[in-house]
Amino acid sequence: MSNREGRLRTADLARVAGLSTQQVRNYEDAGVLPPAGRTDAGYRVFGERHRDALLTYRALQPGYGAVTATRVMRAVHDGDVPGALALVDAAHAALHEERMSLRAAGEALEALAGRDAAAPPDRSGDGPHGPHGPDGPDGRHGPHGPRGLRIGEVAALVGVRTSALRVWEEAGLLVPGRERGTGYRVYGPADVRDARVVRALRRSHHLFDHIRPVLDDLRRAGSSEALRAAVEARGRALTARTRSMLAGAGALHAYLE
């Protein structure tokens, strides 16, 4: 059957979106497309509405992902437009949460950079064995060899109560080691850094759920410089996804109209 009078064959519709005819059939079965008509011989017959649905789905995919795009189109074709829009809202809310975590990472980096800028230069008394080196308050070594800092020492360094450090530990934000025999908490340089990050972000009213991925990224990256590069890349990716979501939402709005 030809595409006269707005009638499209499966092959015609596949050609519009650069798909295989089997993919078009799968999309109809999944509810991405409205139900197709049938000829007397049983062949599918599509129309402009099906073409618009397919193009709308393809516009939704880059920003919302295939799974959400499928669920949105299926809800629309089931007559549940509020349900479809709720899925769109949920996707935008999830993107907002990602942006909040990214903002927290940026503020953490600023806090770390500010502390590094304020640190005194490496002079004879402030070298590897001075008060700011590995043997000093932020280090793992003391006069009797490797140790770590106790919770009270870290609280004094960071400027919080010991109870705050315990709460942050219970929330999974801090993971100090334990001293053999006594079971006392011991904090190394990375633990002190993490505590400083948590304090900075809590003062900006960030939730624990926003802080946790920042610390995970910082530990995985291994340095603030590597994390900064990752944050910048993620920011670009979120911006691109936002633009894709706007384009998809615009296509959906036109389809609903």
Rank of each mutant, 00 (worst) to 15 (best):
G6Y: 01
G6E: 04
A11P: 00
R15S: 12
A17K: 00
T21N: 06
R25N: 04
A30E: 11
G31Q: 04
G31R: 03
L33R: 05
L33A: 05
A36K: 10
H50A: 11
R51D: 02
T56Y: 00
Y57R: 02
L60E: 00
A66K: 04
D80I: 09
P82H: 12
A84D: 10
A84I: 10
V88L: 13
D89I: 00
D89Y: 03
H92A: 08
L95A: 11
S101P: 00
S101W: 00
S101V: 09
R103Q: 08
A104M: 04
G106S: 08
E110S: 09
A113R: 13
A118V: 13
A118Q: 14
P120T: 10
D122A: 14
D126M: 12
P146W: 12
G148W: 07
G148K: 10
G148V: 06
G152I: 12
A155T: 05
A156E: 10
G159M: 07
T162G: 07
L165H: 05
R166G: 06
W168F: 04
E170W: 03
G181N: 08
R185P: 09
V186A: 12
Y187H: 15
P189T: 01
P189S: 03
P189Q: 04
D191V: 05
V192T: 11
D194W: 01
R196P: 06
V198N: 02
A200M: 10
R202P: 06
R203C: 11
S204D: 13
H205P: 04
L207V: 13
D209W: 10
V214T: 13
L218R: 10
L218I: 08
L218G: 07
R219C: 03
R219G: 14
G222E: 07
S223F: 15
E225H: 14
E232F: 05
A233Y: 02
R234F: 08
G235M: 06
A237C: 04
L238R: 07
T239D: 15
A240Y: 06
R241W: 04
R243E: 15
S244E: 15
M245C: 09
A249C: 09
G250W: 07
A251N: 05
Y255I: 03
Y255P: 00
